[in-house]
Computed example of a mutant assay.
Amino acid sequence: MSRHIQVTFDAHDPRALSSFWRDVLGYVHPGPPGVGLPEGADPLAAWDDFLARVGVPEEQRNSKSAIEDPDGHGPRVFFQQVPEDKVAKNRVHLDVRAAPGRQGEERMAGPDDCPVDLGGGEDLTGGGGVEPGLQDGRPTGRPGSRSCADSSLGRTGPRSPA
């Protein structure tokens, strides 16, 4: 019997990091419990309203964030705020399958339908300490952060916030 899993990451800014990975993976932020969101509503704004209503202090409202596969196939990804800086290499990271189902040169050319520009092997850390997010349609993040876009010829592509 298989089990559903959640992948959890430590982060300085869970909301920004979850928004970055939402865009890369095509995931969504779930709405708060018991809150029906109308089509096109901003789930993060709904969370802000919900947390204010239940009395969570504003400085604690970015202590965690999650994203989910809208089709229900992939794992839930959870981001929890931690005060300490990263001091060692990540033992686990996400490899993004940028062109599943494509082979050889077609796969290496990259997907035409990718939700964000994965940068073709460029560093996506944003240079001087830019927080994770999107800038000019490209993911950005903190220096030293990591992810991979794989290819049929081995791992290539960007390194993104983690």
Rank of each mutant, 00 (worst) to 15 (best):
P33F: 05
S63T: 09
V92T: 02
D13K: 05
G101N: 02
A41E: 09
A162D: 09
C114F: 15
S63I: 02
G40E: 08
S147N: 07
G110L: 11
I5S: 15
G74Y: 04
A98R: 00
F50C: 00
V7R: 15
G157S: 06
S18R: 01
V87T: 10
P32Q: 07
V130M: 15
S160M: 12
V54I: 15
G34N: 08
F50D: 00
D10A: 14
P43Q: 01
V82A: 05
L124E: 00
G36W: 08
R142P: 03
K89C: 01
S151A: 05
P14C: 00
L37R: 03
N90K: 01
R3E: 14
D13Q: 14
E84T: 08
D112W: 04
R53P: 00
R142K: 14
D123H: 11
W21R: 11
N90Y: 06
P83H: 04
R159H: 02
R138K: 15
D150E: 11
H93M: 12
G72T: 06
H93V: 04
D23H: 15
T125V: 05
P158D: 07
N90D: 05
V24S: 00
V77S: 01
R76N: 02
D113A: 10
V116W: 08
Q103Y: 11
G120Q: 15
P43M: 13
P33E: 01
V92N: 06
G154A: 11
D85P: 03
F78R: 07
A88E: 00
A109S: 13
G133F: 05
A52P: 06
E59M: 02
G127C: 11
G129F: 15
Y27S: 03
D112C: 12
D71H: 11
F79C: 01
H73D: 01
A16D: 07
V92K: 06
L134C: 08
V116E: 02
H73M: 12
V35H: 06
Q80D: 10
S152P: 14
A149C: 14
Q81H: 14
C114W: 11
V82C: 04
V116A: 10
M1E: 14
P70D: 09
G104E: 13
P57G: 05
H93K: 03
G128N: 12
R146G: 00
L153K: 08
P143D: 15
A66Y: 03
